[in-house]
Design a protein around this nucleic acid. Structure first.
Length: 887
RNA sequence: GGGCGUUUAGCUCAGCUGGGAGAGCGCUACCCUUACAAGGUAGAUGUCGGCGGUUCGAUCCCGUCAACGCCCACCA
């Protein structure tokens, strides 16, 4: 049984992938090691939620980061990729809450805070690792010893340290503020977590009476009449001639008959609505501002669950929608509803819950981000941190140039509890890194901690530091903080530029005075093939694990890499994955071809004088690919790197070099056989190395056979560009050879000759080198185009009559087939080519005739155009000769 | 309303600092040729969104219009 038949005919990744992942782990391949670059390369993995299931976005994260990590590691950087998971406050709490209610019919309040948190931890220990295993299926080469959870001891310390620092600097403050309240989560959420969606509603015009003058009726337009119960003023624009006399008088809010002042405020637009505005400081962002300016009282009419409270007795207990209907009914009864019309307007929805959020005034914690944001902007302006693609810096700037204070408190239990403490006896409030046992002012022991927890992004923002041990000095030493901070690059999606990138910048620079990373590569968002966002409700999600199962992780990775450049969307079609699976199979079968010759192959390349022109050519092409891949990956052009290696394997290695090798490997020249086998093995080694960052599994599998298990491809040095291998003349010669071969095949196809039909081919060229090479290559032409016999002559020789023919720019090809071919057909083929060539020729000729062009164009362009003109002319002459041969 | 981006072959997209329009998939024809039918060989397909400008020369630069997409802010 020979080796070729031992290897399966199609590559099947099953079993192979897990085997190699385990090998790499055992081999400690993912641990940072000092290399020839004498430089570190660090990146952190955006920590997925512990509740998460791997989706295409994660798969893209994993691929773009792993390709880069493996590439840099092979190039000799001391490479560290840090994994981790995020506690994801709201979603985790919600998952466990639901689970407990389902199984035990208990709420978190039934269990109490301490017990409930215990349950979440237990859940996290049991299920939180799921996503980690899924990442491993993708082949991620991170150092798992660094794996960090956002609620581990060190990140906890980081959160506290940072909080206390800002608190003591006065940058964290507590304030009554109007916040977005999510009635499902029963928590405040930050502005950034609110989506504004267009909603169909109504525009109500309502009569308000004026106390001082019962004859006046103010018409007030509103979309939310149910909030009347919280009105504490009516406002008009002080410059509005219609109403300015009313300022200072008193309006009566209908239904609840509250007397409220009529005030003047510039915010009121004269031309919008009716020009009169009901002011509801407790439940509207703008009104809250008006209220502050005018010292208005705040009335809260909502409960935490979004229903109305006792301040709105007529609608108490109702949800806003029902309340609105009820208020409408009452208004109709009272005859104060003047008009109701349809109205589409944007309404805030909670990003996570999908529910309409209610503006509510409550006490929350905030971070004043003004100065931190300035620093973060400057770092990018000064080039301390660079975005790839550059355009994303605009998004970053647009957030940070108008920073809003960040609401960091959440009314949840799962998360980092705010390290602020209160004394019951003296009412003192302070922040502390360690839990105190007594008041630092009055020493009373009756102290308690703030009940709220921090926004999850507060801990994520410290991630580049806390994963490297900050602020624990021992941990920092152990994890190499000094070497690995700042990170080299951050890779993430544009949807969290503000949530995460900006916050890491602000927080990292606040602590260390250094940007936490040098580059930020923003990858695209994966959508379905129609460009729609993948979502549960649409059911258009593509499960990466299913794709891995069906096509192999390498194919999924190659697809994602090939789709990742500076684009902002990836419209993923599973057919593409199939296509790249086929590519994996192609690589596998190319290897199956060379496998039987491996024992002949030497480990070292033969001396240069023994290289065949084919060898010089393939090495030059290989070298060019190495150049492209290196340059592309250095600037995060995964697409260019992928297509370079894809094309090399298909179009150069398989279609030509391997095909050209058959004649030699099956021939009688032992020495030539050895050289060719050596060359093939060499190329394959290099291709495996070049491909390895993108498709680690199949390359490791093939490498193990290539090298008899002596080494791992993952430990090899990456292929670098080598100036000595460049060879312009050889490339030109091979291109001409390919032109001629393709030309012969083209003719064969045009006259419907079967592959089995042997040809007699007559070539005419004035290129003496080419003629020589074609003569030497006559055996190869037999293999590639089934050419049995032929001649090569100069262009002054006489052409055979009535042959199937074709002209390249350098060579005329004649296949004498008199009597067997349709002359008319051949003539029209040639004429068509002639028309096209004439058109091309006249274009360049026109340029050369243009004196402005000749005098203005740079010399190299001029030379190029002249050369083109010459080749077109040569081809035209050839075509002319061919036409004549039919006369 | 403010900002960003997109418009290139049937589809998805690439085209770096201006110099003869590209890839993959799909499609057509022929071929089970001893690595591969998850394959081979050959082939067809574009007013590079419209209009104007700069230039010897524009897919690329500028202006303008149109369509689409995204982000931010917000219409009581």
């Amino acid at each position: 049984m020979d080796i070729q038949n031992e290897l399966p005919k199609t590559y099947s990744p099953e079993g192979i992938e897990d085997k190699w992942y385990q090998t790499w782990m055992l081999n400690q391949s993912f641990k940072p090691k000092k290399g020839k670059q004498n430089q570190t390369f660090t990146l952190i993995m955006p920590p997925p939620n512990v509740t998460g299931k791997l989706h295409m976005g994660h798969a893209l994260d994993a691929t773009t980061q792993d390709v880069l990590t493996r590439y840099k590691r092979m190039k000799g950087f001391e490479t560290l990729w840090i994994p981790g998971t995020d506690h994801a406050g709201i979603s985790t709490q919600a998952v466990v809450e639901k689970l407990i209610y389902k199984t035990e019919k208990k709420t978190k309040h039934d269990l109490g805070r301490e017990e409930f948190l215990k349950r979440i931890w237990a859940w996290k220990e049991q299920y939180g690792a799921e996503i980690v295993n899924q990442q491993k299926k993708m082949g991620v080469s991170c150092d798992w010893d660094y794996a960090t959870f956002t609620m581990d001891e060190v990140p906890n310390k980081a959160v506290r340290k940072f909080f206390v620092k800002l608190y003591n600097e006065g940058l964290i403050y507590q304030s009554d503020y109007i916040v977005n309240w999510d009635p499902i989560l029963q928590s405040a959420i930050s502005d950034a977590e609110v989506d504004h969606k267009e909603v169909k509603g109504n525009f109500y015009s309502v009569k308000y009476k004026v106390k001082e003058d019962p004859n006046i009726e103010l018409i007030i337009a509103t979309t939310r009449p149910e909030t009347m119960f919280a009105d504490t003023a009516v406002a008009v624009n002080p410059n509005d001639e219609r109403f300015k006399d009313l300022i200072g008088k008193t309006a009566i809010v209908p239904i609840c008959n509250r007397e409220v002042p009529i005030i003047g405020d510039e915010h009121v637009a004269i031309d919008k609505g009716t020009g009169c505005l009901k002011v509801t400081p407790g439940h509207d962002f703008n009104d809250f501002e008006i209220g502050k300016r005018n010292g208005l009282p705040i009335i809260n009419i909502l409960n935490a669950d979004g229903t109305f409270n006792t301040n709105a007795p007529e609608i108490e207990g109702l949800k806003p929608k029902d309340a609105r209907a009820e208020v409408e009914r009452i208004m109709n009864e009272l005859g104060i509803l003047v008009e109701k019309k349809d109205h589409v307007h944007p309404v805030g929805h909670g990003e996570r819950s999908g529910e309409i959020v209610e503006p509510i005034v409550s006490k929350q914690w905030f971070v004043n981000t003004t100065s931190m944001a300035d620093r973060a902007v400057k770092a990018v302006e000064d080039g301390e941190m660079t975005f790839y693609p550059k355009g994303w810096e605009n998004t970053y700037f647009s957030w940070l140039r108008n920073p809003k204070d960040w609401c960091i408190s959440r009314q949840l239990w799962w998360g980092h509890q705010i390290p602020v403490f209160y004394c019951r006896s003296c009412k003192h409030q302070w922040a502390a890194e360690e839990n105190p046992t007594e008041c630092i002012e009055c020493k009373d022991t009756d102290v308690y901690q703030d009940a709220d927890v921090l926004d999850t992004w507060f801990s994520s923002g410290l991630w580049p530091m806390s994963t490297l041990g900050w602020p624990d000095e021992e941990a920092m030493k152990e994890k190499g903080f000094d070497r690995f901070y700042p990170n080299t690059v951050l890779i993430t999606g544009f949807d969290i530029i503000f949530f995460w990138v900006a916050r890491m910048m602000m927080m990292g620079m606040k602590v260390t005075d250094k940007a936490p990373f040098k580059d930020v590569y923003i990858h695209a968002l994966v959508r379905d093939k129609q460009g729609r966002k993948m979502s549960k409700s649409l059911g258009n999600g593509i499960d990466p694990l299913e794709m891995v199962k069906e096509y192999g992780a390498d194919a999924v990775r190659f697809t994602l890499a090939a789709s990742s450049g500076y684009n902002r969307d990836i419209n993923l079609d599973p057919e593409r994955i199939e296509g790249y699976r086929n590519f994996m199979n192609k690589v596998w079968n190319a290897f199956r071809f060379i496998a039987p010759y491996l024992d002949k192959a030497k480990d070292e390349l033969p001396i240069k004088s023994e290289w065949h022109l084919h060898d010089k050519w393939i090495l030059a092409e290989l070298n060019a690919v190495a150049k492209t891949i290196n340059e592309s990956l250095d600037v995060y052009r995964y697409d260019d790197a992928s297509s370079a290696i894809y094309q090399f394997v298909y179009d150069k290695l398989c279609s030509w070099y391997i095909e050209l090798s058959k004649n030699i490997l099956n021939g009688n020249d032992e020495k030539a056989k050895i050289i060719r086998a050596t060359m093939l093995k060499y190329c394959f080694r290099k291709v495996m190395i070049l491909l390895h960052p993108i498709t680690p599994f199949i390359t490791e599998e093939i490498w193990s056979i290539l090298e008899n298990g002596k080494s791992l491809v993952t430990d090899q040095e990456y292929v670098e560009f080598d100036k000595n291998l460049e060879n312009e003349e050889v490339l030109t010669m091979m291109n001409k050879f390919c032109d001629i071969t393709t030309g012969i095949r083209n003719i064969r196809s045009s006259v419907n000759l079967k592959p089995k039909d042997e040809l007699d081919v007559k070539l005419f060229t004035d290129d003496k080198e080419l003629a020589k090479f074609m003569y030497e290559s006559r055996h190869f032409l037999k293999d590639l185009a089934n050419v049995k016999s032929g001649t090569i002559r100069g262009k002054s020789s006489e052409r055979p009559k009535k042959s199937a023919s074709l002209a390249t720019t350098h060579t005329e090809i004649f296949i004498p087939l008199e009597g067997l071919i349709d002359i008319q057909d051949q003539v029209s083929r040639i004429k068509k080519d002639m028309d096209k060539t004439k058109a091309d020729y006249s274009k360049v000729e026109a340029k050369l005739a243009n004196t402005n062009f000749v005098s203005n164009a740079p010399p190299e362009v001029l030379a190029e155009v002249k050369e083109k003109a010459a080749t077109f002319q040569e081809k035209l002459e050839s075509l002319d000769k061919i036409l004549n041969s039919f006369m």
